[in-house]
């Protein structure tokens, strides 16, 4: 049974890259365009891993992570924060929000795939 991954990303191109990459790699994909949709999708789709962009409309990534961590009755899935805020402190913020991985944009698809595989093992 293939693993399910929730992609939270507001830019279509970046979403497509992840979709193409992950679909090609045999993952089942669900996508969310904003933070609120991400929270809903996390509850309904029950992904095995979440790729979470931080700069999102409506609810930002950190908020969404907080909601997901709070709402899920069962063990929350691993979350990888994908941020284009490469300023100092972003990574710390991501860890503080309870992320399991951190990838700065622009990311290398290979690198992201490696990270996902590492976390899903």
């Amino acid at each position: 049974m293939s693993k399910r991954i929730l992609i939270v990303e507001d830019t279509e191109d970046n979403r497509r890259i992840l979709r193409d990459l992950l679909a090609h790699s045999g993952f089942e994909i669900c996508e969310a365009h904003d933070g609120r949709a991400a929270v809903t999708a996390a509850a309904e789709f029950k992904p095995d891993l979440i790729l979470m962009d931080i700069q999102l409309p409506i609810l930002d990534g950190y908020e969404a992570i907080r909601h997901i961590k709070a709402n899920t009755a069962t063990q929350p899935p691993p979350i990888i924060a994908v941020t284009s805020y490469a300023l100092s402190g972003d990574e710390e913020k991501a860890w503080a929000a309870g992320c399991d991985g951190y990838i700065a944009k622009p990311f290398s698809p290979r690198q992201i795939l490696a990270k996902i595989r590492e976390l899903l093992e």
Partner: peptide, 13 residues
């Protein structure tokens, strides 16, 4: 970074 991400991502794929 956002557009650059797309450029580099597609290229790599």
């Amino acid at each position: 970074r956002t557009p650059l991400n797309a450029v580099l991502g597609y290229t790599e794929l």
